[in-house]
Amino acid sequence: MEYEKENSIVEMMQMQFPEAAFKVKKERRIEVRLPSARLYDFAVRMQKKWNFLHLSAISCVDWIDDGEFELVYHFWNYDEKVLVMAKIRIPREEEGDSHFETISNLWQPAKFFERDIHEMFGVYFDGSEDMERFILTDWNGPPPMRKDFITREFALNFYHYRDYEPQWLKDMMAAGEGNE
């Protein structure tokens, strides 16, 4: 049978979390959609019971049309060699930070990812020790990775444009009547 190992892991997890939606995407990749309130329990169980000891990354996706942020937690198991992507959705605030709970007391790598998501997207992780700016010091604007921050516009207003007048262009324009 295909994906035997992945399917047995899914069965085991589904028993504890009946409200979650599991899907085996391909070998070594399992996707879970959870209600956001259940994530902390899921993370605890991942680490303590099911041996998913490695938190590879926490990603955030800004679904502006739905008005939600999607947080994706990637867990890796060194023994079973399977990756589980746990996805949750939290509501997106237009002004100010959205809030969610931290898992940095369980996993130390989460500290950096949560700090990064806070300054880039504006999601505050309650209970985290350090939510200060890391990469963008001296930045006073809105969280830049959000979809309503438009880089083009920022560049137009902030940077100074410079035009070129090379000799070949001057010669060309003098030779004929042209404009560019």
């Binding site: 004929g176 009547e177 560019e180």
Partner: peptide, 8 residues
Amino acid sequence: IRMIEIPG
């Protein structure tokens, strides 16, 4: 890359 009109 910018496209430039070549006179002539």
